[in-house]
Design a binder for these strands. Structure first.
Lengths: 108, 108
DNA sequence: TCCATCGCTACAATTATCGTAGCAAGATGC
DNA sequence: GCATCTTGCTACGATAATTGTAGCGATGGA
C-alpha cells in the first residue's frame, strides 16, 4: 500500500489545526466512513458482507476506509476474520445512534 | 446550477434503499458537511467567514454543501445575510456534540 | 462615485471514487 | 493430492467530486 505512511490517515486533510474534533469530522466525512460504522453496529461482518451491506460499494474505497478506521482504532480485523468495531468504535457508534431517530423525524 | 432538480440532494447517492438514516449518513458523509454544521453551532456566519472557519475550503464545494444542507432543512440564509442553523439543524448539531468529548478522549 | 463586502459562479487541474477483474492464503470436501 | 470455496486485499482505466483561482452582479456606506 504505502500510501499513508505511519501517521493517522493523512496529514489531516480537512484541517490544518489538528484539533481532534476536526480530524474526526474529516475522517467521518469521507465517503462510506459513517456507513461502515453504522453497518458494523450489530456485530462483525466479513469484508464481502460489509460490501453487500454498503450497496456494493467498490472494494477499493471500502478497503481504504477500513484501513483508515483501523488506524484510528475504531475498527479491527477479528482473529477469525471479519471486521468488527473495537470498544472505542462501539462508543463512537453509540454516539451516532440518536441520528437514527432524528433521521426518521427528518424525512418529512 | 440545475444539477439537483427538486428532490433532496440527488437520487440518494449512497443508498438505493432511501432509508432516511442512509440518506442522512450519505449527506453528512460528503466533504465539509459535518464541518459546516459544526462551525455554525455557535451562530450564523457569513459565507466568507464560514470559508475562513473551514480552512479556506473552496467556495465551489462550500456552496454546493450549503445548498444541499439548505434543501435538507438544516441550514438557512438569514434575512440580513449570513448562514445559520435552522431549529432542525440545531437539533442535528446537538446530536454531534458528544463527538467533541469523544474526540478529545480519542486523540491518545 | 468609489470602495468594500455580500452571496455566488466559471473553469481548468487535481483527487477521490467507481466498477470490474483478479490475486495469494487459508479452509473444506473428496 | 487436488479441486473447489471464501477470506482479505489489490490493479487499473473510467467517471465523478473537490480544489484553487479568479471574478461576477447586487448592496451598503463614505
Amino acid at each position: 500500500m504505502a500510501k499513508q505512511a505511519d501517521t493517522k490517515t493523512s496529514p489531516v486533510r480537512g484541517s490544518r489545526t489538528g484539533r481532534p474534533i476536526m480530524v474526526l469530522l474529516d475522517l467521518l466525512g469521507r465517503r462510506w466512513s459513517l456507513r461502515i460504522m453504522w453497518e458494523l453496529r450489530d456485530g462483525p461482518l466479513t469484508s464481502r458482507a460489509l460490501r453487500t451491506a454498503c450497496d456494493e460499494a467498490s472494494p477499493t474505497v471500502l478497503q481504504a476506509r477500513l484501513t483508515e478506521l483501523r488506524e484510528a482504532g475504531f475498527v479491527e480485523l477479528g482473529d477469525g476474520g471479519g471486521y468488527g468495531l473495537t470498544p472505542l468504535g462501539q462508543e463512537l457508534c453509540e454516539t451516532f445512534m440518536p441520528l437514527h431517530r432524528f433521521a426518521e423525524r427528518w424525512r418529512r
